[in-house]
Design a protein around this nucleic acid. Structure first.
Length: 212
DNA sequence: CGGCCGATCCACT
DNA sequence: GTGGATCGGCCGA
């Protein structure tokens, strides 16, 4: 298990990065607890030309500034006054691309996720939805700007390659206001039948047996 | 300042 | 399927 390195985040094609992130592990070590989830849903936000992107038209504010930084940091913000949404900043400095993580398969530290979400939540849905996964993982928008290369929030790579046939591509959620950009195929979802298989790949056997 | 709005979620019908 | 919660960010005056 290796922490994803800088070269991964510096890629220029944020849509492809969103696809590559499917199946990787998102890790948090917050408040003395470790929680991990397998990334199962992402969306790409394609910089200054994308009307759904906060940095559309080169809009630079205190909130969006981190999107203009070099790839490899997290961009967190408060949505609807209630939910923290977790994004990964991608590409070179001054190219404000980002990937929103929308769903995880809970993998490790599930007891802590339950504490954060409430004991009544269905175990399989602890990290379903961008606001919910932030709550389960212990993310807060005050952590925006942290580097994923040297802190306690990061992505683990494990060598597992997810074939395209296991990934559903669709338009992004909740961005109707982006008009002609609302229907772009920038959302990637791991097909449900494959979620269980992938979780088993992570749980069983040596790495050499887990390459799919 | 004041007002509007949002990359959501949940309870309720 | 619908509507209310809830509040920081953003913009215009």
């Amino acid at each position: 298990m290796m922490r994803l390195q800088k070269s991964f985040y510096l890629q220029s094609d944020v849509v492809d990065v969103a696809k590559q992130l499917i199946g990787k592990l998102l890790v948090s070590k917050i408040g003395g607890t470790v929680t991990k989830g397998i990334i199962s849903e992402t969306e790409a936000y394609n910089g200054i030309k994308d009307k759904a992107c906060h940095a559309f038209n080169n809009k630079r504010t205190n909130r969006t500034e981190v999107m203009f930084h070099e790839g490899g940091k997290c961009y967190l913000y408060l949505c609807y006054g209630v939910h923290t949404l977790f994004n990964i900043v991608v590409s070179e400095k001054d190219t404000p691309n980002a990937v929103l993580i929308r769903s995880l398969i809970p993998f490790e530290g599930i007891v802590f996720m339950k504490e954060r979400r409430g004991l009544s939540v269905n175990e399989n849905k602890l990290c379903s939805g961008p606001g919910n996964l932030s709550k389960a993982m212990g993310f807060h928008y005050s952590q925006s700007g942290l580097s994923l290369l040297e802190n306690d929030i990061f992505i683990e790579d494990n060598g597992i390659i997810i074939e395209d046939q296991h990934i559903e591509v669709s338009k992004r959620i909740g961005v109707e206001y982006a008009k002609e950009h609302a229907d772009l195929p920038y959302r990637f979802v791991l097909k449900p039948y494959f979620c269980d298989q992938l979780k088993k790949k992570y749980s069983n056997g040596p790495l050499s047996d887990r390459i799919s």
